[in-house]
Simulated assay, not measured.
Amino acid sequence: MADAADADYGDEFADDFARETEPYRRELFAHCYRMLGSVLDAEDLVQETYLRAWRHHGGFEGRSSVRTWLYQIATNGCLTALARRRDADRRVLPSGLGPPERYTQSAQLEPDLREQWLQPVPDALVTTDAEDPASVVAAREGVRLALVASLQHLPARQRAVLVLRDVLAFPAAEVAAMLEVSTASVKSTLQRARATLQERAPAADEIAEPTAPQAKAVLNRYIKAFENSDADALTRLLLHDAAIEAPPIRAWFKGLENCIPVLRDRVLGTPGLWRMFPVAGGANGCPAVAGYLRDAQGRYQPYGVVVLEVIGDRVGRIVSFGDPRLLPVFGFENAALREAGPATSPR
């Protein structure tokens, strides 16, 4: 009888824990992504957060809300993870490392594996269909590539304070309690973080929200142009001052006079070289595609994820993440496709 009672108690405890904590999983994931700049690291950190919360749930005395308690665990976990990174506590985009290059035939487009590169995040992991439209827009804007890339230039503790205060709107006293510092320290840290971020803040047109029909139309035109190796179609699709960057390649380019030649000469190849599939929901608040590149045997090998920053009915920036590990996160196979494969390749 005692064993049955213990089992019932364990099930009740698990049910209570899930009911109290699961509603915050998506926003905690977005928080860890902003802090770490990596969707793969954020997944691990959220799992670690829930494991630690489970272990210590019995000692949670309600001195704060469950949401605040979970954010405290997640934030300190992120700070610990950032401190463990040997090279740097930030992930970057090529545009954050220096000015654009002028394209020439001899331009070096080799991967730079010394840097830790920013990764994209599926919108499906940070928003839900059940949320009201205003909440969906806010969630998408909170993970824009330009914003997350800017955050990465802040020292880890400044990053934590700014996200907790300005993005999540926690009171300064609660942030101080989470980080075990004084309220005065939070306020001074926030002031320094805001000053640094203001220098790198994205322009208004970089975070403009395209309408759904516009985004879909632009995405379809991009896929068609790429799969047909049509540089002229891409010329009509890109803004005059559009930019292209492709981590882990360090070089990046700005302006049609540079972007179109690099695409035509070094990327597009011949028709059929690329297969691209729309990412349901997009990435970082933008339209996105999963890309596969045909090898010499005619099989399409996994490439990665491409995010399009859309302004009106044109593309202002292409950020091409050449990392096949990202594909399963976005619902696609990290494996070769047959040449006559399906129109989509979900898991």
Results as ranks from 00 to 15, higher is better:
Ala217Phe: 03
Ala201Leu: 12
Ala193Tyr: 11
Thr196Asp: 11
Ser229Asn: 07
Asp230His: 04
Phe226Ser: 11
Asp205Glu: 15
Asn220Ala: 15
Pro202Gly: 09
Ala212Asn: 09
Ile207Thr: 15
Gln191Thr: 12
Asp230Leu: 00
Pro202Leu: 06
Pro210Ala: 08
Ala208Gln: 14
Ala208Arg: 14
Asn220Trp: 03
Ser229Gly: 12
Asp230Pro: 03
Ala225Val: 03
Arg194Asp: 00
Ala225Trp: 02
Asn228Val: 00
Ala225Asp: 06
Leu219Lys: 10
Lys216Tyr: 08
Ile223Thr: 07
Asp230Met: 04
Arg200Gly: 01
Ile223Cys: 03
Gln198Ile: 00
Glu206Arg: 13
Ala212Lys: 12
Thr196Ile: 10
Ile207Arg: 14
Leu190Lys: 11
Val218Gln: 07
Ser229Gln: 04
Leu190Trp: 10
Arg194Cys: 05
Ala193Gly: 03
Pro210Ser: 10
Ala201Glu: 08
Ala208Phe: 02
Gln198Val: 00
Ala225Ser: 06
Val218Trp: 01
Arg192Phe: 05
Leu219Gln: 15
Pro210Met: 07
Glu206Met: 12
Lys224Phe: 05
Lys224Ile: 05
Arg194Ile: 01
Ala204Arg: 14
Thr196Leu: 11
Ile223Met: 08
Val218Pro: 04
Thr196Glu: 12
Ser229Met: 05
Glu206Ala: 14
Lys224Pro: 00
Val218Phe: 05
Pro202His: 00
Lys224Ser: 15
Tyr222Glu: 08
Phe226Gln: 13
Thr196Met: 10
Gln214Phe: 02
Lys216Arg: 15
Tyr222Arg: 03
Gln191Phe: 08
Glu199Leu: 12
Leu197His: 09
Leu219Val: 01
Ala193Cys: 11
Pro202Asp: 06
Arg221Cys: 02
Leu190Ile: 02
Ala201Asp: 01
Ala204Gln: 13
Ala204Glu: 15
Gln198His: 07
Ala231Tyr: 02
Thr211Glu: 14
Ala212Gly: 08
Ala231Gly: 14
Pro202Ile: 08
Pro202Asn: 01
Lys216Phe: 08
Ala225Phe: 08
Ala193Trp: 09
Gln214Cys: 01
Ala203Thr: 10
Ala208Ile: 12
Ala204Asn: 09
Glu227Tyr: 06
Gln198Pro: 00
Arg221Asn: 11
Ala225Tyr: 04
Ala231Gln: 05
Arg221Gly: 13
Arg200Thr: 05
Glu199Met: 05
Pro210Val: 07
Asp205Ser: 13
Arg194Lys: 13
Glu199Asp: 07
Glu199Arg: 15
Asp230Thr: 01
Glu227Val: 06
Ile223Asn: 00
Arg194Met: 01
Ile207Glu: 03
Gln214Asn: 09
Glu206Phe: 02
Glu206Ile: 05
Ala203Arg: 14
Glu227Ser: 06
Leu197Gln: 11
Gln191Asp: 10
Tyr222Thr: 06
Ala203Cys: 00
Leu197Glu: 11
Ala208Asp: 13
Thr196Phe: 00
Asp205Cys: 02
Ile207Asn: 01
Ile223Lys: 05
Ala215Gly: 08
Gln191Lys: 14
Glu209Thr: 15
Ala193Arg: 10
Ala203Val: 03
Pro213Lys: 09
Glu209Met: 11
Lys224Val: 11
Ile223Leu: 01
Glu206Asn: 04
Ser229Thr: 04
Asp205Arg: 14
